[in-house]
């Protein structure tokens, strides 16, 4: 059962990579990379059980945190990039309220 779940998670990771390569907009790619990261956490946990070494769970936990930080970092970077090319980003937010 665990091996079947591992294979399913691997297939989903491949699908996420396809979306990250095809994805029309920047945000599709970030979304796919985020999904790839969360699936990696699951994959590490499952692999730990396949190999009979539950110590892998620590690595999975650290990977979850790193994945979150990296997504936020890429978003900050993309915001700064767009701000440089399209004017200030904060203006539509104020008009929205």
């Amino acid at each position: 059962m665990i091996i079947a779940a591992t294979l399913a998670v691997l297939v989903v990771m491949i699908l996420a990579i396809i979306r990250a390569v095809v994805g029309p907009s920047l945000y599709d790619r970030i979304l796919a990379v985020n999904m790839f990261g969360t699936k990696t956490v699951l994959l590490i946990a499952l692999l730990g059980f396949v190999m009979g070494r539950p110590e892998f769970l620590d690595i999975a936990m650290v990977y979850a945190l790193i994945n979150f930080v990296s997504v936020i970092g890429v978003l900050r970077l993309s915001d700064a990039f767009n701000a440089k090319h399209n004017g200030p980003v904060a203006e539509p937010a104020k008009r929205d309220s």
Partner: peptide, 14 residues
Amino acid sequence: ASHALGQAAVLNKL
């Protein structure tokens, strides 16, 4: 994470 992603997309007028 998904809230930050969605808000960035909205702010950049997707």
